[in-house]
């Protein structure tokens, strides 16, 4: 394949990955990795290197809009980043002792199982705000944003310790598998902390850039970040993510939840199939 062809294909596919990733708070690795390995026969290490960069591009490209619109909860994001960065370092530390195939299988199954509670509340729009108590109160894990119809939505976070524990796992997975693990972040915020779906996906989007940056250094130094692959991916994702961000601010919570459930199912299946060598 000619360099030009490769770059054009990657650029166009990455725009799509950027739109999807920014909508549901993931990094686009779900799209980028199989496209590179299965679609174009690129070495898995280059695919993972490109995925790490695509996560940072999705995050930074969309977060500018989400933060300005006050959809992202900055305090929730910073608090939970304690867990993701600590987890990412631990993941890098134990990576050589862990069977990544088994890990991928376990993580894929976790994602598929977590579809159940997600689907059960598929029509939920805004959760009833629980009382702000304990650690959530101390850390002011509360906020509000303006919905599409102009109404203000107030929300409080519950069970911050569980949310933080979920983030340690997300960071661990990220350090071990080279993915942004936005799926797990959204799930923790949605199921444990009971945040509105749009707050969960945009706050996850905000955080995945930092999680990915934590493990990016190692991939860069190893020479896994191949410019010929990463350049069209990064530019495509940046464009796609800024488009997706404009869509999300106008989308409804139940719609975002449905798209997230679909992407989660695909991501879970993809991991299980890859682990089983299919």
């Amino acid at each position: 394949m000619l360099v030009l062809e490769l770059m054009v294909i990657l650029f166009l596919a990455s725009i799509v990955a950027g739109v999807i990733g920014s909508l549901v708070g993931l990094g686009g690795g779900v799209v980028v990795i199989p496209m590179l390995t299965i679609g174009l026969g690129v070495n898995i290490h280059y695919a993972i290197g490109a995925s790490i960069v695509s996560v940072i591009a999705t995050s930074s490209g969309a977060a500018a809009t989400y933060v300005k619109d006050k959809m992202t909860n900055l305090r929730v994001g910073m608090f939970l980043e304690l867990g993701t960065t600590a987890g990412a370092i631990t993941g890098a530390l134990i990576a050589t002792y862990v069977n990544s195939v088994a890990l991928e299988l376990i993580f894929g199954v976790i994602l598929l199982v977590s579809l159940l509670p997600l689907v059960r509340k598929i029509g939920e729009d805004i959760p009833v705000p629980p009382e702000l108590t304990g650690l959530s109160k101390k850390l002011k894990l509360t906020g509000s944003y303006v919905e599409t119809d102009g109404s203000t939505v107030n929300y409080n976070a519950t069970r911050p310790a569980e949310g933080l524990a979920g983030m340690v796992v997300a960071g661990l997975i990220s350090g071990l598998l080279g993915i942004g693990s936005g799926t797990f972040k959204v799930l923790s915020m949605d199921l444990a902390m009971k945040l509105p779906m749009k707050v969960s996906t945009t706050t996850s989007n905000f955080m995945i850039g930092v999680t990915a940056a934590a493990s990016a250094g190692i991939y860069f130094v190893r020479g896994d970040v191949n410019p010929i692959i990463v350049a069209p991916v990064a530019i495509g994702i940046l464009i796609g993510a800024s488009m997706g961000a404009r869509v999300l601010t106008r989308a409804r919570n139940p719609t975002v939840r449905k798209i997230f459930a679909l992407v989660l199912a695909i991501a879970g299946l993809e991991m299980v199939l890859r682990a089983l060598g299919i």
């Binding site: 960069v53 850039g209 990064a234």
Partner: peptide, 8 residues
Amino acid sequence: VLLLLATP
């Protein structure tokens, strides 16, 4: 790419 990594 390094500038992108430095953004977060």
